[in-house]
């Protein structure tokens, strides 16, 4: 049996086991090669397709690398001012409680300029999903220090490495929001390996299922890479992330509902 025949036989709709979700647009993403943003978008789209809620969900895009999220996800999306996505999402959900609402925010957006909006939306228990991409750097503006930049980590504004004595400590937002009564499900995941992607996708599914039940804020941190900002190849960046980011930002559930 030659390869050609085999391939020809296999490439049929009935044998299809994986293709890009139709909730993604045909646009090529603006993300750098190997960036976790694309994967995170993809699995959000997959969950929305699987739950068949494309017509019932509104997304809120941040200012950051994912500012153009609306070009890649075939959803109704509002682009919010820097850090304000949780406030924007709060109003959408309050005014249309029957819809699904999520924010998608990078670390600068969520953990620096938008800290107040994040904490208060979580504290009010807004019935929204917050997806928080933490890659320890400001990617869009060219690799500046983020609130989540690790101690000693170099960036264009911590060129000698983050000195916590003068620049403060890397902020663990997920740990903080898990202490708030308003949050219902809080987890930290990643998307660098197939198993991690599958786990993160399950977390997104759970969060949206909880939202359907009006349970409160669901917060999913995705520790991710920034190959360009970290000046590494994508494969190296994922390895570095596992070796250096995960010890400080360990993966796992921070708050799991009792119903699980």
């Amino acid at each position: 049996m030659s390869d050609n025949i085999t391939k020809g036989k296999m490439i049929k709709p009935e044998n299809l086991v994986y293709t890009k979700s139709r909730v993604m647009t045909d646009n090529v993403t603006s993300y750098c090669p190997g960036c976790g943003h694309g994967t995170a978008h993809r699995i959000i789209a997959e969950v929305i397709e699987e739950m068949d809620i494309q017509s019932e969900i509104i997304g809120v895009a941040p200012v950051g690398c994912s500012v153009l999220m609306y070009d890649f996800l075939d959803l109704d999306i509002q682009q919010a001012a820097h850090g304000r996505a949780p406030a924007v999402a709060t109003a959408i959900k309050r005014l249309m409680p029957e819809k699904f609402v999520f924010t998608y925010q990078d670390d600068g957006d969520l953990a620096a300029i938008g800290t107040a909006e994040t904490i208060h939306a979580c504290n009010r228990g807004e019935n929204i999903m917050i997806v928080f991409i933490n890659n320890g750097i400001y990617g869009m503006t060219g690799g500046q220090m983020a609130p989540t930049t690790l101690e000693g980590m170099k960036s264009s504004t911590s060129p000698y490495g983050r000195d916590v004595a003068t620049m403060g400590n890397p902020l663990k937002m997920t740990d903080i929001v898990a202490t708030l009564p308003g949050t219902y499900y809080v987890t930290r995941q990643s998307v660098q390996k197939p198993a991690n992607v599958r786990k993160t996708k399950k977390a997104i599914r759970k969060a949206l299922e909880y939202q359907k039940l009006n349970r409160g804020t669901c917060f999913i941190e995705i520790v991710s890479n920034c190959p360009s900002g970290w000046k590494m190849t994508p494969v190296e960046s994922n390895k570095w992330m596992e070796d250096t980011m995960f010890p400080y930002y360990p993966l796992g559930d921070f708050k799991v509902p009792e119903e699980d």
Binding site: I58, V60, Q78, A80, A81, R84, A87, V88, A89, T90, A91, I92, R94, L95, M96, A116, E117, H120
Partner: peptide, 25 residues
């Protein structure tokens, strides 16, 4: 809907979110 926001900044962004849904906010 009435909501006391955490700041004026949050309040106007809530207005943005609501207005973008076509609501009178």
């Amino acid at each position: 809907i009435i909501l006391q926001a955490e700041s004026e900044v949050a309040a106007i962004n809530m207005v943005y979110g609501g207005a973008a849904c076509g609501k009178k906010v």
